[in-house]
């Protein structure tokens, strides 16, 4: 990746302990526990409805927790003000509707909201962070374009730049590469990998097992609201796992992952 972004703030880790999330009487996540270290990219994998998004929202405190705790550097996330939380973690939700055809630079600048930045009047650190994020995501040529004129791949990069501009040490992204072609999937995952290699931590929901295998340091496997396995790809990814999680026949051979068909 071109010009380097600033080192994320000191970050000692995300700790999730026995977290449960429910909607009404339905349990969406049951007793999830895991830890995420700085410099680690964890992929959250599981079938539709496994509770991946609910787990992310529960961690952040956007979905009401029934029990459990999620903390960054020992501080409970649910107890943080939205502004303080935004300084600690960037969140890319699954749905990323943009209400207005704002210029790319303005959308990226909204990543600085928690720092007090106002659109059209960026100064000092805010301006630098926005320019760095725009450069890192290769958006210089598009910075003045209305977002309504961008392709899906370009928009995905805009949202990544928005998340990186916050310069928060932890990135939580819900399907950041959904609906992207293979080339743009690699582009976005490269950006996230680069962020992690500079000391950040990332928790990313993915549906592409091969992509997760290629980029993630750790795989968190979810099924029916529970984390059923947690570990590096070499230890947790094999044909039996694909069968258990997705109900598909697959072949795993070193770097290669082939999904052969439904069971």
């Amino acid at each position: 990746m071109s010009p380097s972004m600033e080192q994320p703030d000191r970050f000692r880790g995300l700790q999730v302990t026995d977290l449960s999330v429910s909607a009404g009487r339905v349990t969406l996540v049951a007793g999830a526990s895991f830890r995420l270290q700085p410099g680690e990219l964890a992929a959250l994998l599981g079938p539709n409805g496994a509770g991946k998004t609910s787990l992310l929202r529960g961690v952040i405190g956007l979905a009401p927790r029934v029990s459990g705790r999620a903390s960054i550097d020992g501080e409970d996330i649910a107890a943080m003000t939205p502004r303080r939380r935004a300084r600690q973690l960037s969140y890319l939700p699954q749905n990323r509707p943009l209400a207005w055809p704002s210029p790319v630079r303005d959308v990226v600048a909204l990543g600085r909201f928690s720092h007090g930045a106002a659109l059209g009047r960026l100064r000092g650190a805010d301006r630098h962070a926005v320019e760095r994020a725009i450069a890192a995501c290769d958006l210089d040529a598009l910075a003045g374009r209305p977002t309504s004129t961008l392709s899906g791949g370009e928009l995905a990069r805009v949202h990544c730049a928005r998340a990186f501009a916050a310069e928060a040490p932890l990135l939580i992204a819900d399907e950041p590469v959904a609906e992207l072609d293979p080339y743009h999937q690699f582009r976005v995952m490269d950006l996230i990998r680069d962020f992690v290699d500079r000391g950040g931590g990332a928790l990313v929901v993915l549906h592409d097992v091969a992509l997760a295998r290629r980029y993630a340091d750790r795989l968190l496997w979810m099924k029916a609201g529970s984390i059923v396995a947690d570990g590096p790809p070499s230890e947790t990814l094999d044909a039996a796992r694909l069968e258990q999680i997705y109900g598909v026949r697959g072949r795993v051979d070193g770097e290669r992952v082939d999904i052969l068909g439904p069971l």
Partner: peptide, 15 residues
């Protein structure tokens, strides 16, 4: 301005 991103992301950026 933050609500341009939708409510969930607006909350995410600190609103």
């Amino acid at each position: 301005s933050a609500l341009t991103l939708g409510e969930e992301a607006a909350s995410g950026v600190g609103l």
